[in-house]
């Protein structure tokens, strides 16, 4: 198993509020899991906690990733181990060019694996090759990290970074939001090209349209910090039609 989450509870450090209230989830290599759920239910918090964001504290439960205790690893080592988060709100870093940023990232990953840093020319070749996955304009790669990027460009840039780092598990947090119809197809195409029997993804989304392109093996509904329903891809279609009320009803609310 690639990822196993058992009874995960997490709070917001600044105010002590519990957001994740006992999550259980198992993911095998080769699978795509969609997570849906109303606004504020804890989807981004789950991704943040898995990636090791220091704003949250795990109070209970365990997470095994690739045979390792994920919660004991630093955020950068989680990345080195192959966990990638496509942020719902990618961060701008003024003055730091995408190529400098990616070069630092790639070389840290290589160092972790005991490899020499990439030469400048090999690195540029890799950049050019991976940009094509998401049809990212070469000019964007010369600009500062996400600075002044449009919403859609930021999302494409996340998938470009994913292509560069070739993660084992990618968590795509609303990567479809802000994308126009063509961009959605391009980004989804990029994700599909990166898919293999060795890796897996968690796709967080509100809409079926992304799942038309990236077809999930499982769909989970996260509600009030818990996974309250899991099924096959047909669940997403049902949610699209009926919303969440029927699930709340099932829960006796």
């Amino acid at each position: 198993m690639l990822l196993e989450i058992k009874n995960l509870h997490a709070i917001i450090k600044s105010n002590g509020k519990e957001i994740l209230k006992g999550i259980d989830l198992s993911i095998n290599a080769g699978e795509v899991h969609a997570i849906m759920g109303p606004n504020g239910s804890g989807k981004s918090t789950l991704s943040s906690v898995l990636a090791g964001n220091p704003s949250y504290e795990v109070t209970e439960g365990e997470v095994i990733f690739n045979g390792k205790n994920l919660l004991e690893l630093s955020p950068e080592d989680r990345s080195h181990e192959g966990l990638f988060l496509s942020f719902q709100y990618p961060v701008e870093i003024p003055g730091v060019s995408m190529s400098n940023f990616m070069r630092a990232a790639i070389n840290e990953h290589r160092k972790y694996k005991g490899l020499e840093p990439l030469s400048a020319s090999d690195f540029l070749k890799l950049m050019r090759e991976k940009q094509e996955y998401v049809e990212l304009n070469n000019k964007l790669a010369g600009r500062s990290v996400n600075e002044g990027f449009s919403g859609g460009e930021k999302k494409r840039n996340e998938i470009f970074q994913m292509a560069m780092l070739e993660p084992k598990l990618s968590i795509l947090d609303e990567t479809d939001s802000g994308l126009d119809i063509d961009a959605l197809r391009i980004v989804a195409g990029g994700v599909n090209k990166l898919k293999s029997s060795e890796n897996a993804s968690i796709v967080i989304t509100h809409y079926q349209r992304l799942l038309d392109y990236i077809v999930p093996d499982f769909v989970h509904v996260l509600y009030k910090g818990k996974i309250v329903k899991s099924a096959g891809k047909e669940l997403a279609l049902e949610l699209e039609k009926k919303g969440y009320d029927w699930i709340k009803k099932e829960l006796g609310e």
């Binding site: 955020p75 989680r78 630092a104 972790y112």
Partner: peptide, 11 residues
């Protein structure tokens, strides 16, 4: 910003 870098593997 720091976490974004961390997530990409930069300490």
């Amino acid at each position: 910003q720091v976490f974004y870098c961390n997530q990409r593997g930069i300490k």
